[in-house]
Design a protein around this nucleic acid. Structure first.
Length: 322
DNA sequence: TTCCAGGGGTAGA
DNA sequence: TCTACCCATGGA
């Protein structure tokens, strides 16, 4: 049967900041995730069979070695197995399963990035489901980010809703997206030419021909090269080199730069005196970060965002050289 | 109106 | 391998 409300905890190795992790990039603006700045609370909707449950996460306490996260699960039919599944998925979502000590060591010697470990940043938020990440990534190609968020959130409406809430839904399964069909994607979600890519992905996943949920296990195998992972990811129609490099970083491989218009703009602003850099030039600038190139450029960029600046300010690190 | 965004696919060289 | 062109959409 299960109960309707359960609390549990999750340990995050320090340095760790829930806010820096959740706001590490735009995923937190997208269904089924949200961030409440006032409550410093991360919320996401998880699926328990065909029902939706609300999961709320806050920082509960800190010791020298870890941050304890308080997790509240709210919804019908919660049993021990579901609580375990939520905890496992949350660990992936918040990157708690990643060892970022080497990246933090790289940051420590950097004139700009040295603040990253000090404010507990460096872990990127993602969905635990790679299929979900791929659908969102397709929506993010060749549109401005606010438009991508709108598309993603309209797809998010296809999943089962939380009781008593009209707009809180668990992320839909590929089968549910297929059931909604092309007309829905075109006329309601307004994904334009991306509809074919999204439907083809859902069909491949549903038929078992493609298994994005198995990519994490593949990436955990050191014998599987990043090139092999990228070849699999790029077999998805609508995923090209920039997006594939972005997605492979979700799998813990940060040695390939995802170069898009935001990268070019950032590098022009911060490294090349406003002159538009070539991809080759960008690669040269970040080559020194080796296996952490993607993280390095991203967090350099992130520090120019309001969130990054605010967190540096809150930590009292403004303008402080290392 | 025109441009272009957190690009990618395709044809032709 | 490189380049030019096309692709829906909607904010600026």
């Amino acid at each position: 049967m299960g109960t309707n409300y359960v609390t549990t905890t999750l340990a995050a190795p320090r340095p760790f900041s829930l806010k820096a992790t959740v706001l590490s990039h735009g995923w937190h603006e997208c269904s089924p995730m949200s961030w409440s700045e006032g409550g410093r609370c991360f919320q996401l909707i998880e699926r328990n069979a065909d029902k939706a449950c609300r999961v709320s996460v806050v920082e509960k306490s800190r010791t020298k070695s870890k941050v304890t996260l308080g997790v509240a699960i709210d919804g019908p039919g919660i049993d021990d197995a579901f609580v375990d599944a939520v905890r496992d998925r949350l660990a992936i979502t918040l990157g708690l399963d990643r060892d970022v000590r080497e990246f933090h060591a790289v940051c420590a010697d950097d004139p700009v990035l040295h603040v990253i470990p000090k404010i507990g940043a460096g872990r990127a938020i993602r969905s635990a489901s790679m299929t979900e990440n791929v659908v969102k990534a397709i929506c993010g190609t060749n549109v401005n980010w606010t438009q991508a968020v709108k598309m993603i959130n309209r797809i998010g409406q296809l999943g089962p809703p939380v009781r008593h809430f009209v707009s809180l839904n668990a992320w839909p399964t590929p089968r549910e997206i297929l059931r909604a069909g092309e007309r829905y994607l075109l006329e309601v979600v307004r994904v334009g030419y991306r509809s074919g890519s999204i439907l083809e992905l859902c069909e491949r996943v549903t038929s078992g021909e493609l298994d994005p949920e198995g990519w994490d296990a593949l990436a955990a195998d050191p014998n599987v090269s990043t090139d092999d992972l990228l070849a699999t990811i790029k077999s998805v129609r609508g995923i090209g080199p920039a997006t594939a490099n972005y997605l492979v970083s979700f799998l813990g491989r940060h040695d390939r730069m995802s170069i898009d218009s935001a990268t070019v703009a950032h590098v022009a602003r911060t490294h090349t005196n406003g002159k538009k850099p070539s991809h080759k030039k960008i690669e040269q600038i970040y080559a020194k970060y080796g296996p952490w190139k993607q993280s390095a450029w991203w967090y350099e960029h992130w520090l120019t965002w309001e969130t990054g600046k605010q967190m540096v300010h809150e930590a009292g690190l403004d303008g402080k050289p290392r």
